[in-house]
Design a protein around this nucleic acid. Sequence first.
DNA 1: AAAAACGTTGACGCTACGTCAAGGTCAACC
DNA 2: GGTTGACCTTGACGTAGCGTCAACGTTTTT
Lengths: 249, 249
Amino acid sequence: MRIGELAALAGVSTRTVRHYHHLGLLPEPVRLPNGYRAYRLRDAVLLARVRRLAEVGLSLDEIRDVLADDQGKDLREVLVELDADLARQQEEIGVRRARLAGLLAEPDLSGDAVASPELAAVLHDLSAGGSRFAEMDRQMLTLMGTVAEADEQERVVELLRPLAEPGMVERGHVLYERLDELTDAEPGDPRVAELATDLADHLPEEMVKELLGNLPEEGAPWMAAMYEDLSPAQAEVFRLMVAVLKEKM
Amino acid sequence: MRIGELAALAGVSTRTVRHYHHLGLLPEPVRLPNGYRAYRLRDAVLLARVRRLAEVGLSLDEIRDVLADDQGKDLREVLVELDADLARQQEEIGVRRARLAGLLAEPDLSGDAVASPELAAVLHDLSAGGSRFAEMDRQMLTLMGTVAEADEQERVVELLRPLAEPGMVERGHVLYERLDELTDAEPGDPRVAELATDLADHLPEEMVKELLGNLPEEGAPWMAAMYEDLSPAQAEVFRLMVAVLKEKM
DNA sequence: AAAAACGTTGACGCTACGTCAAGGTCAACC
DNA sequence: GGTTGACCTTGACGTAGCGTCAACGTTTTT
């Protein structure tokens, strides 16, 4: 038999056979005078054995080890282990399909998949104003929806609930506008201090507690990222606001 | 944010982030004076989006296409297609596990897994004699058990059934011994012709028909491989036998 | 001041082969 | 005897998604 016949017999490509030679899975047969490999029945049997193991999912390295350990009990162990591995893979694919179904269930696939409908509502209200600053907040929350743990998400959703109440939404929009106006202002601008105190007054009490307990320097690391996106004046607003809040306690 | 913080935030390695830059999945952010990449909130949101898609199983190329096609209906198509693909994978793993279970069900894992118990019995009887020639036949049948189609296997098992009957087994052993003795003989040896006619007489009728209809030159290709393993005298035995059988028809 | 912990680019490694490239060999047909 | 076509040979690059050095600069901590 030459390599093409052997390969056809086993249902693989000639490249595969040579690859197995290279890995030492299949012994190199004797050569004909012209350099062609001359296979015999034994080789076909060996190749078939290798293929049987490969087709159930053993890696070629594992197959080589198994064939080297020459037979019997070890193989059984390996196969049992493999079966467990395959079961794990099936499970994992199941999880992915579940997540996929979650994504597909959402009407808007534009990228803002969010865990809770309440959070989604808050996001919607936030972006409604068209404020650039609100957009940033929205991104923060979107991000939270994907990177934070489930329990932390729930905590934040609870925290934000007051913001979604009728009266707050409009007041929120006004505050966002005032923040937007400070984008190109100087840190010493008089509007900075004014806005800081107004913000401090308007924040719900629980959010204040959360904020002071979770200052960017220490608490949730993803919160620190936000500060770097602020203009100097805006950052100053928050520094002042925190100072005001600390005094009020 | 520097690259390490971003990566930690998204739960990936820095290498992964750089890889995404390289593939154009994530825009390169501005650099700090020292050359470090300076990420902002936007980048974290983008990275989180990429990861969500990657985690359900989209390839990075697909993700890039989806993000480029900027939003909406196309993504949904892709996800539906992906779900079908995942379902197919689960199915495939199921098939492999079934085959694995088949292998594990067998008491002897030494490599001779065979489709039918009858064939296994024939194999056992064949190797019992200790004949080298019988061993070859056994390998042929083992090979058949793995490379032939199910219907062809069944046909062969039917053909071999008479060989497993009480009387035939001993006669078979004797014939195998006589074939073994010819391993190093010359093609002109008088025992060659004698054995050829004896073989022709002893073969069950169905096997004769099958044999003549499936001569190595034309029929099942894996059969031709056998001839190359024969010594000259042994090959001569079969050539003569075929000639005798042809005349008898 | 040294060490630890970050960052930078560049390059090789991994799986199981597919797919050229550049040629030699063999049988058949003209 | 030449040509075509189907085989064979070795060698080397490409694939997906990063992990993991290497060799080096920067920032922070001890």
